[in-house]
């Protein structure tokens, strides 16, 4: 009787593990991007430079809050006009700064995150920053897709920039 209960329990646990693996393939696959990788950000949440420019030139009410989640030095060199330095997403201090920057922001406000420190698949900052904002309950977060880096994909293409902190 006892061994039958034990077998039933083992079977239930095995089924639960199998179901969980089937329902969440991203976690079970060895090739799934780590949550800290930019590749973990859903494609539907990416925004291209042209589309961001369009938003920035549009009506005031539709303008996004643009946050740079990368290096302070890079921000001081060049950044998107009106954007706010929010700290590198790969560091705890950066995530804390990010949290403070959005403390009084409405949860449905359109927020655009960007970094551009490294090629997209190597960027250590935007993945954790995106996750942090989602975890904080922000529902309208986009991430600027910069394939190579901010210099190549924004500055060299002639998009507007500001300098300094």
């Amino acid at each position: 009787m006892q061994s039958r209960s034990f077998a039933r329990a083992v079977f239930s646990v095995a089924v639960a593990i199998l179901c969980s693996a089937l329902h969440n393939p991203a976690q079970s696959s060895p090739n799934a991007p780590s949550p800290s990788s930019a590749l973990s950000i859903p494609e539907s949440q990416l925004i291209q430079p042209d589309a961001l420019i369009h938003l920035l030139q549009g009506a005031e009410s539709a303008k996004p809050l643009v946050l740079q989640a990368g290096s302070r030095i890079f921000f001081a060199e060049s950044h998107i006009p009106g954007s706010v330095f929010a700290g590198p997403g790969s560091q705890l201090a950066g995530l804390q700064l990010l949290q403070s920057k959005v403390a009084s922001t409405a949860k449905n406000q359109l927020i655009v995150l960007y970094c551009g420190c490294c090629p997209w698949n190597r960027c250590p900052n935007v993945g954790p920053a995106y996750k942090q904002l989602r975890d904080l309950g922000f529902t309208n977060v986009k991430v600027l897709y910069l394939a190579n880096n901010f210099g190549d994909d924004w500055v060299k293409k002639g998009y507007p920039v500001e300098h300094g902190l």
């Binding site: 001081a76 210099g151 500055v155």
Partner: peptide
């Protein structure tokens, strides 16, 4: 240690 001034002197270091 670098900074934005050195970065700008070298053509803008905006990606590593």
């Amino acid at each position: 240690m670098g900074d934005e001034r050195l970065g700008n002197q070298y053509g803008g270091i905006l990606g590593l």
